[in-house]
Computed example of a mutant assay.
Amino acid sequence: MLQATATLARHQVEPVESPLVARITDDPAEIRQAMQLRYRVFAEGMGAQLPTAAEGLDYDRFDDLCMHLIVKDVLNDQVVGYSRILTNELAEQAGGFYSATEFDLSNIVRPGKRYMEIGRTCVDPDFRSGAVIGLLWSAMAQFMSANNIDYLMGCASIPLSDGYARTVAIINHLRDKHFTADDMRAEPKVRMPGIEVSLDGKALVPALLKAYLRIGVKVCGEPCLDKEFNVADALILLARDDINQRYLRHFARAED
């Protein structure tokens, strides 16, 4: 079982340090907490229209097969960070990777290579510091090494709550600085409308995606428009050998 620890002082409470633990869980209560966290982040925070909204949960058919990576605030028995993992074998059972519902992966998923797909990655708003992200990524890096994974991939969401202009500016910046080589691109199944913008996209990159980029992630081309989640999804790809270990350690140490 993966496990890593760090401490984080909670905001707006007495200065008591709360231990955080990252692990893969199969505990139904913890998985339900994770689905509640996903609902709060994606539905309440980003405006996603979820078919499971009446339950206050976010889940889909992939959740019955994937591995659930959580960061837990042990002191308060609360899941505060999350990402799900699909390996080649689990994706085969699910009928394919989740990313394949949004992108043509023929240039990305190659024979003889092992992949892990992350998805639904989110952090409780009260815990959005480098510590939680660092724990998630440390656990992912351990998983890649322990399971001989060649590539990590997944969909990084860019909110559309403010319209298309900010998102187009972000993609323009990513296109200039962070896209993969032409032969490692994924074609989106639903393209985002193109508009002219003069915004500085670098300054608008969401914190979670910015963290991915600093760890070494590349973006596999143009994003897919996900109207249900009210986001533009960028397909990310990271080779195991390209992980920025120095920056990963920086995240794990950060507390503010």
Rank of each mutant, 00 (worst) to 15 (best):
D60T: 01
L235Q: 07
G112C: 06
N244W: 11
A94G: 01
L174F: 09
I118C: 14
L69S: 05
Y212M: 08
L237F: 12
R166D: 15
L152A: 15
V219C: 11
N244D: 15
K218A: 04
V71N: 01
C66L: 12
C66R: 10
V205R: 11
M153E: 08
S18A: 15
S99N: 03
C155D: 07
C155I: 04
A203I: 00
P188R: 00
E117I: 04
G95N: 07
A254M: 12
P28S: 04
I243T: 06
D182L: 08
K72C: 10
D150I: 02
Y212V: 02
L160Q: 02
V132G: 02
C224N: 15
A54G: 11
I195K: 01
A203H: 07
S138V: 04
P19R: 09
M153V: 04
D182K: 11
M153W: 07
P193H: 02
F229N: 02
M184T: 12
P159N: 01
A207P: 05
F127Q: 00
D242V: 10
P111E: 10
K227C: 11
A34D: 03
D27K: 09
V109R: 12
F229I: 02
D200T: 03
K189F: 13
R246N: 14
M192D: 05
P193I: 06
T25C: 03
A254H: 09
A186K: 00
R240A: 15
R175N: 05
L174Q: 08
Y164E: 10
L238T: 03
R185V: 05
G112N: 05
R191H: 12
A53L: 04
M184S: 13
Q245L: 13
T5R: 14
V219P: 01
A100N: 13
E222I: 00
M1C: 13
A100Y: 07
A239G: 15
P15M: 03
L235A: 06
L37Y: 07
R240Y: 12
R214S: 09
V71K: 00
F251V: 11
E92G: 07
N244C: 03
Q245S: 13
G96H: 11
R128L: 00
D58T: 00
R246W: 11
A165S: 08
A156P: 03
G112K: 04
Q33C: 01
D64Q: 13
R166H: 14
E44F: 05
V168H: 11
G47M: 02
L65G: 12
G56D: 06
L57N: 08
P206A: 00
A9F: 12
N230P: 03
Q245P: 07
T87A: 02
Q49H: 14
A43Q: 08
N148G: 08
Y82A: 02
F179S: 00
Y115T: 03
A6M: 05
A252C: 12
K202S: 13
E187Q: 11
